[in-house]
Design a protein around this nucleic acid. Structure first.
Lengths: 147, 147
DNA sequence: TATTGTTATACTCTATAACTATA
DNA sequence: TATAGTTATAGAGTATAACAATA
């Protein structure tokens, strides 16, 4: 099965990665969308605040490799829907500290738990070692760039 | 590194798959887009015709697990831009045989070669065995559904 | 001038329903 | 009724440029 020329699409890594990403994202996405009405970037913003605590939009950008326009829109939507609050810093009024509300924390904890359940399901199906190897491979394929 | 609760986003498989898919698709996508002005589904249609020969839209749908609306639009765009021709079958006028033009074949061969080069680059970087295992894992994650 | 964040815009991708034509 | 394919539409994701406010 080693890759030789010509390439067969069903063995082409980018193709398989796309399908697998779609497939594995779908279940979790359905969950956070139907239960909380969240979009992908919104869930990621909640994740960052829930895991690492209050921070600025630019910190989420750098930690999550997300472009500032994505984070800006997500934060704005999350604030409107009371998942987080923004507090302007007096020391530098360009900065706003983002903070999960009670509802935001609830959503985070619920989603954390759902992600855990999903991860265990994957581990049961594919094996811990296999998934660890998968993580290593995927991480080394990811060149961070902030989009 | 075995997955335990709580889940850390940077270790969450769907997240990693998304990033890796984006990352590995990007280079190849840039190629077929800038060189031939193709979109993803258009390239996949060309791939099917180039690899397996003339067929109907519905065959591409089933072989490539693509929804008929996606294929319909891709075929229409490819015909307009002279990458393929359509010939209605007299035996059943709902059917149109899709056939790559000379230009379509050229694009296919060029893209095949580019995909081969890219695959070998991946293999050099990550190893044939690792990539074979990756393929097996990804394939078993993919439940075909035709979207 | 550089940084933080917002707004506007356009393109790509996905998903579904409603439709035509043919069988 | 079922199948092949088209069209319309909306939502989601991505990318970039231009902008305002602040430092």
């Amino acid at each position: 099965m080693t890759q030789k020329t010509p390439v067969d699409l069903p063995d082409f890594i980018p193709y398989l990665l796309n399908l697998a990403a779609e497939e594995t994202s779908l279940e979790f996405k359905e969950y956070y969308k139907s239960k909380f009405g969240l979009l992908r970037t919104e869930w990621r913003v909640i994740f960052h605040l829930g895991t690492y605590g209050d921070m600025l939009a630019k910190d989420i950008c750098s930690r999550g490799n997300l472009h500032k326009t994505k984070v800006s829109r997500a934060v704005s939507a999350l604030e409107k829907r009371r998942f987080l609050t923004r507090t302007q810093l007096l020391s530098d009024r360009r900065h706003e500290v983002l903070h999960l509300t009670r509802q935001g924390v609830c959503a985070f904890e619920d989603l954390q738990s759902a992600a855990g359940i999903y991860s265990r399901k994957l581990a049961d199906k594919f094996g811990d070692e296999e998934l660890d190897m998968l993580r290593v491979l995927l991480k080394s394929m990811i060149r961070m760039k902030g989009g």
